[in-house]
Write a protein that binds this DNA or RNA. Structure first.
Lengths: 237, 237
DNA sequence: CGCTTAATTGAACATACTCAAAATTTGTGG
DNA sequence: CCACAAATTTTGAGTATGTTCAATTAAGCG
């Protein structure tokens, strides 16, 4: 698989800044980060970094969708988070100077910038506001992780699958039709989000289909009845 | 239940500093934090703050053991974390300026200092090193939360209970005999750590007892065979 | 067009939950 | 310190929810 050559756009010209943690830093600071920046292209399915590997930088997603997952003792995968344009990945390994705690995989073709740890630490040192923003990002991730924990511990398969679909909708949005999830996952991947076997995931999706909650068109999931989907996720059913 | 009157020791004289995030700040900075510090006593079982309540400060545990838990939709409790001397609780609510995401309950009589948000934000602004340390604390909490997520999603009841006992050992240590957990939880609370019903928790503890892994003396859990306990937790059995 | 991967279906099964009842412990007031 | 009430622990039996494993069909890719 050959690496595609693409422009290494400096941070100051990056269109993701609006949603990113870098939206409030000065252009001078952006230039400083850009100085040692690398830009890589990852094809769908390619791994951006592996759990357990030594951290070789902090990544910022310029374009594309990414899943962050961990392997359990038995080799079963668990998706812990998703990330998309403007978001940082690999920051925990950077902050603790440890190896990566999870594996990041491209869910579709991605452009990902690789930032130098040193430059980011410089920024953390010099710009307290940036530190504070990063604290908020982490704080939010922790909150979501704990919510996810309680969901997996206490909710039924139906609820968890319904909720996973809603999470995908929130995170990656819908296609032009305003109904179809814009991200495509395999049944196994969707199961790995909710902590459910592939077979049970398939059966549950099929149930939702029959019940008119979703429409299945190959790998695409169309939300046919959002209200019902929300009800199913919330145990209000 | 009347509030016990105790000394409000300034941070500069606090013995927990060795393990706390405040260990590296200057005595001047400690004095600044101490200025508006409150100190409270909580009896075993008392709630330090409730999930959903508006954040009224950041807490630092001077003495005692605390559980942090959340309620699921059905009202079932899930313990998400523990904290003890020197640790901060309620920092997420502070950072995001949201209400508390979880409930903190004293597992034994506790002395807890209440710190002013303003003073902590001042410190975050002025001392980049302190920000960085807080980032590391959050980063570590996130890592643990994700590990817990994968454990609950993929491990059996036996493994999870065994692991929970090991976590209690790491976090709160053992009594003088070097075998007995120094923290006392009800069977329900232990189940709430691992995401398991009270009945199943009791049955599993009883199995461990019969198998010589632990000794049960009332509420006290004595680790009879640590190696076997670790094996049971790791699925190496 | 052949081959690999993913999706689907079925049936048997196991794990852990639910509900109910009894035994024990703990806390509290007198 | 005792007695009663409340909370916790324990045990049992039945059951549901999801898993496992195996086999088949469909889809994607070179």
């Amino acid at each position: 698989m050959k690496k595609q050559v693409i422009d290494n756009v400096p941070c100051s010209e990056c269109t993701t800044n609006g949603n990113s943690i870098f939206c409030n830093i000065s252009s001078g600071e952006k230039d400083a980060i850009s100085e040692r920046k690398g830009m890589n292209f990852f094809k769908k399915g390619q791994v951006i970094f592996y759990e357990g590997n030594h951290s070789h930088g902090l990544f910022c997603i310029k374009e594309g969708k990414v899943k962050i997952s961990k392997l359990g003792d038995e080799g079963k995968e668990q998706v812990v988070r998703f990330a998309t344009s403007g978001e940082l990945i690999g920051y925990r390994a950077m902050l603790s100077n440890e190896s990566y705690n999870a594996t990041a995989t491209a869910l579709e073709d991605c452009h990902v910038c690789q930032l130098s740890k040193g430059k980011i630490f410089d920024l953390l040192q010099s710009n307290q506001n940036f530190s504070l923003q990063l604290l908020k990002v982490l704080s939010d991730d922790l909150k979501k992780s704990e919510q996810k924990l309680i969901n997996i511990a206490q909710k039924s398969v139906r609820e968890r699958i319904a909720e996973s679909i809603l999470i995908l909708k929130e995170k990656f949005g819908l296609k032009e039709d305003g109904k179809t999830l814009s991200v495509v996952l395999t049944r196994k991947e969707l199961g790995d989000v909710a902590g459910i076997t592939t077979e049970t995931t398939i059966r549950t999706l099929s149930d939702f289909n029959k019940e008119g909650i979703i429409d299945l068109e190959g790998k695409y999931i169309r939300i046919a009845n959002l209200k019902k989907l929300i009800q199913t996720a919330n145990l209000l059913d």
